[in-house]
Amino acid sequence: MRIAATRAGFLRGARATLPLTVGLLPFGLVVGVLAQAQGLSALEQVAMSALVFAGASQILALELWADPAPIASAVLAAVAVNLRFALMGPALAPWIDAVRGWRRWLMVGTIVDHAWALAIAEMRAGRHDALFYLGSAAMLWSAWLITTVLGHALGAAVALPRGHPLFFAAPACFIALLVPFWRGRGDAAPWAVAAAVSLGIGPLLPNPALAVVAGAVAGSLAGALRDTAGGGRG
């Protein structure tokens, strides 16, 4: 398989991604407003969005934010939410191998859902230009910075008090994403275990991020053991 790495590929990736940036707007605004409400300066918010570049983990970490900044729960939130990126690496590996030096590690460092999905669609269509991925990721990254900066400015302008109903938008982001995550009735039991464990043992744990991780691990383990029991259905 011949894999190119051209400027044209980069531009095609960026163009293909442009329409998707509209969908980032609500998440970016929520992250920016939340960061502002939790006391992050505009510069700190930009640093987080630019370097972490993973919205759901940023929302979770910011929900658990405290003063001084909680390093342990921020890392737990990042690992728990972003472990899914590890699953995307192998499919993208042929393209990553095709570029060298800093561009290779930039590709690894910008593995993210939308760009990955577009790249897989390109591969299936028989078009192999590794820089398509970087074009797509660059477009998403730019949109992510713009929307989170907007959110931070909005939060500073409106200065919502803690506990304002608008902050329900942060958990609502996760609740909304449950709809596309739902794969069928088989998800009901693992999800129920996750909720029960998170609610039940959460108050006993020293760190709220641990409650989220404990619930997720318990639910996923229950589901995985059920799926693979008897060797058939997994």
Partner: peptide
């Protein structure tokens, strides 16, 4: 292995549920 693959497949949903449940409750 099969168990790890199934585990990782369940992870996004259970993680979001584990986060949302206490926030809602």
């Amino acid at each position: 292995g099969a168990v790890l693959r199934a585990f990782l497949g369940h992870l996004p949903g259970t993680l979001f549920v584990a986060f949302a449940a206490p926030a809602v409750a």
